[in-house]
């Protein structure tokens, strides 16, 4: 084969190979690590998502936060102003976690319908509402 042709062929093969691997990784990564976002209302009406890693968001319901005095167990309700979801978490809450503020929790839905959170996210802004929550609230309006 002409050296220039051969050079080209090899180049294209390499690119093809690298892209295939990248696509493989991207697809694998996306299929196993996507965190779908749900609102309390959506979670109430679905049973098939128990046990999968998901995110849920809403506003922390006033007076719903119950903290243990002897352990890091904490539970609270999040709401989209239609339905509430009980969230259980064990750990230190972020600095900006507070009642009547937006919060996103990551974890999975337990058999009893409560949400077992592995991570609690709050944002550094007092006027902040998680965009997912804002959207969800808007959808409920319409």
């Amino acid at each position: 084969m002409h050296p220039l042709r051969k050079q080209r062929l090899i180049t294209f093969l390499v690119i093809f190979f690298a892209i295939s691997i990248a696509i493989l990784l991207v697809v694998r990564g996306l299929s196993s690590n996507l965190n779908l976002f749900y609102t309390p209302t959506e979670l109430k009406n679905s049973s098939e998502i128990k046990g999968i890693n998901i995110r849920a968001g809403g506003m922390v319901l006033k007076d719903s936060v119950v903290k243990s005095k002897t352990s890091l167990e904490v539970q609270f309700q999040i709401t989209d102003y239609e339905n509430n979801l009980l969230v259980k978490y064990s750990g230190v809450l972020p600095d900006l976690f507070s009642e009547d503020a937006g919060v996103v929790v990551q974890g999975n839905l337990a058999k009893d319908g409560s949400f077992q959170a592995t991570e609690v996210l709050a944002k550094h802004d007092e006027n902040y509402m998680p965009p997912e929550v804002a959207n969800a609230l808007k959808k409920d309006d319409s």
Binding site: M59, Y81, N127, M129, A134, L137, K138, D141
Partner: peptide, 9 residues
Amino acid sequence: AIDLGVYGA
């Protein structure tokens, strides 16, 4: 404000 969908002031 939440019912109105207020983001901020």
